[in-house]
Design a binder for these strands. Structure first.
Lengths: 150, 150
DNA sequence: TAAAAATAAATTGTGCACAATTAAACATTA
DNA sequence: TAATGTTTAATTGTGCACAATTTATTTTTA
């Protein structure tokens, strides 16, 4: 045998179908598009929805804390939060005890959106067609990859 | 027993940690960041790299075909391809047999990049720390989700 | 405590992503 | 074949993402 056992083209790894990362990139964008109609009804974007998920749970968080949890920096968050502030959904003020920090606080109009968002997760789950088990397993794997890369 | 068997807060589904989609969103962005140093060395962005993966394999594709494979529309592709054209990596010309279509063709400078990109997939694979088996299984699942959502 | 280092946001500039609209070419059909 | 409808890109406008730099504040250290 002079040929290799599996005569693989060395360029096979550079084909789109063999990429690991493209499926992640594609799924992420398709998921965001699937959220679109639900979120549009509330007048918010997907990243803004993520900010609300945290604020509905915590009421108050600094920009730094939001950034750590969402893996976003101030270059992304500052303009995004300013847009949300303009809609009276949240407040932005310097922490008096540390003027470097900006504290983001949930306002009544923002709190009121939670009720309207309540059914979104279940509707999304139905749409992707995964069982709760599959979803949990997948989430564990993804969380592990995130930890690996961060 | 007056309480439910598993007394779950109805708002639990609206917590970030219980989201399906955030991990996808986060993994996708972290992966792109991990590509960054490799791609920067070649002077290209991640979406531009994806275009090259297709052109290295097919030499010529219409904007429509690129869009179908990458799930991107002309609003994204047209300016991206114009930037790649400016770097002499590819050509853009109308199809003489159907003037509606624009054919993207690989140019020598673009073809030459393939050699420099050859090691990127293996380095990325090592970086994410998945076995080839895990990767294959994951890719199958993701491809299924994409089909489900598209 | 004065100088140096570190931290937190904001700013600047580039490049996607995508919805919505427009324009041109082609196909269909009345 | 003229009118209608469809297809393909390009355009316009908004909102992320992120690298790199800047500014203000706080902490550390000499």
């Amino acid at each position: 045998m002079l040929t290799t056992p599996t005569p693989t083209d060395p360029n096979d790894l550079l084909k789109l179908e063999n990429q690991l990362c493209f499926p992640f990139y594609a799924v992420s964008r398709q998921l965001t598009k699937t959220y679109q109609p639900h979120l549009q009804a509330l007048g918010l974007t997907y990243p803004q929805y993520l900010v609300f998920l945290l604020l509905w749970e915590h009421e108050q968080l600094t920009v730094k804390e939001l950034g750590e949890r969402l893996l976003l920096d101030s270059g992304t968050l500052t303009p995004l939060l300013k847009r949300m502030e303009q809609k009276q959904w949240l407040s932005r003020r310097r922490d008096p005890r540390d003027e470097r920090s900006v504290v983001i606080g949930l306002l009544p109009a923002g709190r009121a959106l939670q009720a309207q968002a309540r059914d979104i997760p279940a509707q999304m789950l139905a749409r992707v067609g995964l069982t709760l088990d599959e979803l949990t397993t997948l989430r564990t794997q993804l969380t592990h990859i995130i930890k690996q890369l961060t």
